[in-house]
């Protein structure tokens, strides 16, 4: 009885601890009177936030999703991945007078790579490729769009834990830990801006808690008016939307007997690889946060291959010989999970 009570008091204390930490920090840098003032405003701010229902991780995430969809913002962030130089990006988002979402993502180093989204039209401008547009409501960027826009879709497969508050990018931030319920996928640490709910930092960590990939926001600006950049976009000049070839309904030849919790087959087809022209049976798995590709080839065309495991940035690459078939998996999941998925593949008779 005593121990369970203790448990409760500790739990309650954790909620208040980081705030007190911030206050202590403030006390250190300010004079006595200033500190008093800060304390007052801090308490008021807390009151305002607790009026907003953000005392649960779910409420924080819906605040984030709302902020990402509805605010005019400009965010500078850096992506850090193993084995690759750091990649700085500028990300701008605005709502025009007709309520249409406009978004721009710009890679700031090198020859440049720019993506512009106006409503449901996403235009890619990249070196070595003629510009093209796709019909989509999200930009395929370095961050998991589905988490930002529809976090509620992940609630069944991931657990969201409110951890505490800290200071990130010079702002006070709420930390949220994201853990897959069946411990089969990498976890995330999110730091959300206390004021706006926008992302300040995101760490992808492996099952031991070691960082794999990091997004660090350097500067964040929320404005009343859309950024003047969006007024300069000449809509008719954007490339036409590419019309996709109608998907031939092929009967799936393969069956997966194991899938991590919340993961589903998003697509199953036969296509040619862009670089080598080889024909592959393809399965795309997704759980909203990570995408996993599985390629199946007859052994003869996959000559000279053998079982191997590799890593490209934070992607796990696993190739297995299974009877007459060579199976390759690419995706940001732990090798153990990748192996379990591959081993469960079965030919449908």
């Amino acid at each position: 009885m005593i121990s369970s009570l203790k448990f409760l008091t500790i739990h309650l204390k954790f909620i208040t601890v980081p705030r007190i930490g911030v206050l202590l920090a403030l006390l250190c840098i300010s004079t006595e009177s200033l500190a008093q003032e800060n304390q007052d405003t801090e308490l008021q701010a807390d009151f305002a936030i607790s009026q907003y229902p953000s005392d649960t991780a779910e409420a924080w995430l819906s605040k984030m999703a709302k902020a990402f969809k509805s605010l005019n913002y400009s965010i500078s962030f850096v992506v850090l991945k193993p084995g690759v130089d750091s990649q700085p990006y500028l990300w701008r988002h605005a709502i025009d007078e007709n309520g249409i979402e406009m978004e721009q993502l710009n890679l700031l180093n090198g020859p440049g790579r720019e993506v512009v989204r106006i409503g449901n039209k996403v235009s890619y401008f990249e070196p070595n490729v003629p510009p093209y547009s796709l019909q989509s409501s999200t930009i395929n960027g370095p961050f998991p769009s589905e988490l930002f826009y529809q976090p509620e879709k992940l609630f069944d497969s991931y657990e969201f834990v409110l951890v505490g508050r800290s200071r990130v990018s010079g702002r006070s931030a709420q930390q949220i830990r994201v853990i897959s319920n069946d411990k089969s996928r990498f976890g995330l640490n999110l730091w959300l801006d206390q004021e706006s709910g926008l992302l300040l930092k995101m760490n992808m960590v492996n099952l031991e808690g070691q960082p794999l990939e990091q997004i660090q926001v350097a500067a964040i600006q929320v404005t009343e008016q859309p950024d003047p950049f969006f007024a300069r976009i000449d809509l008719p000049m954007l490339p036409d939307i590419l019309v996709m070839r109608g998907q031939q309904a092929t009967t799936p030849r393969w069956k997966l007997n194991y899938l991590p919790l919340g993961m589903h087959v998003a697509k199953q087809d036969i296509h040619r690889l862009p670089m080598t022209g080889e024909l592959v049976d393809y399965i795309l798995l997704t759980d909203g946060l990570v995408d996993v590709s599985i390629y199946l080839q007859p052994m003869a065309s996959a000559k000279a291959s053998q079982d191997l495991i590799g890593r490209h940035e934070s992607n796990t690459i696993l190739t297995r010989q299974m009877g007459e078939v060579s199976v390759t998996l690419v995706g940001k999941i732990p090798a153990v999970t990748a192996d379990a998925i591959l081993k469960s593949i079965q030919l449908v008779q």
Partner: peptide
């Protein structure tokens, strides 16, 4: 081959949202 797989994976992720 591995590079081809990775390139295709990236492309599929981009096309996924379209489909």
């Amino acid at each position: 081959r591995i590079n081809a797989f990775i390139a295709d994976h990236q492309q599929q992720m981009r096309l996924k949202s379209v489909e």
